[in-house]
């Protein structure tokens, strides 16, 4: 019963949403070139299925690669900020400022710097947009470690490295995964941003753009749905990883 509810309720909500969408389009009498309705989508998927697979894969691998780089870089930066007050003071304004820049403005900058390197540019953007939450959460996690946790090992003469591996790192994992959930969505947005904005792009973003150019509205909406599905897949992949590595942080439900 509980399992049925867990799967059934979200599916019901999805169906209700689809019906509502269909209803709104029907009631307003919108033609296809104003707003596509869900019933238009299967045809679009069938016609462009090969493209969806190819483009979807391109979007996926570039997002994941960008995110992986963001994880490595963000964790290192977070460690620097967590352990050194000087690094924290120096880097925080810089990071906050960088984060505040709308990333769309960076697309032409990157495109000019690395002309024609579409894959590289896309991965770079996915990375640039997503490392910030990881760096901040790891930094805060490490710098707010309660002194007792450090003391039980320090009193035994343990080195800083040992304390990091045995205590600081695992204790920061829940915060890290919280940030990773934000970061994965951001990386996805970064990838699509470059794919849509830069000319001769690839990936689902480019497919969206070509749908727009050809006034193929069902295709555009089909891409949006595909993006949403991919986003959900990525998000829950992170949730699954979190369950494996930081499942202990979940309170037993009573």
């Amino acid at each position: 019963m509980e399992k049925l509810q867990k799967i059934g309720v979200p599916i019901l909500a999805l169906v209700a949403f689809g019906l509502f969408w269909e209803f709104i389009v029907w009631v307003n009498g919108w033609p296809n070139y104003v707003m596509a309705s869900p019933s238009d989508l299967p045809a679009a998927y069938i016609r462009f299925w090969d493209l969806f697979l190819i483009m979807g894969w391109q979007t996926l691998w570039r997002t994941v690669l960008g995110l992986l780089i963001a994880v490595v870089f963000g964790t290192l930066l977070g460690m620097a900020m967590g352990f050194s007050k000087i690094a924290r003071d120096a880097l925080y304004p810089l990071l906050v400022g960088f984060n505040a820049i709308p990333k769309a403005t960076l697309v032409p900058v990157i495109a000019l710097l690395f002309i024609g390197q579409h894959d590289f540019n896309t991965v770079l953007m996915a990375f640039l947009i997503s490392f910030f939450p990881i760096a901040v959460s790891v930094g805060i996690g490490l710098s707010t470690l309660e002194p007792e946790y450090r003391d039980i090992l320090r009193a035994l003469g343990a080195s800083k490295v040992t304390i990091f591996w045995k205590i600081a790192l695992p204790k920061t994992l829940p915060e890290f995964f919280g940030a990773l959930k934000v970061a994965v969505t951001l990386a996805f947005i970064g990838t699509n941003l470059v794919e849509i904005v830069s000319p001769h792009g690839r990936g689902l973003g480019a497919l969206f753009k070509s749908g727009e150019t050809n006034a193929n509205y069902p295709l555009m909406f089909a891409v949006l749905i595909a993006l949403a599905v991919l986003g959900i897949v990525l998000y829950y992949a992170v949730v699954a990883l979190e369950k494996i590595f930081a499942g202990w942080a979940e309170r037993p439900q009573s």
């Binding site: 309660e146 007792e148 946790y149 009193a155 003469g157 045995k166 204790k171 202990w248």
Partner: peptide, 19 residues
């Protein structure tokens, strides 16, 4: 002068490593 291995510590917070 520095931490020694021959000391044990316990605090008000049991400082359990939850993982």
């Amino acid at each position: 002068k520095s931490p020694r291995k021959t000391v044990g510590m316990a605090f008000q917070n049991p400082v359990m490593l939850e993982w």
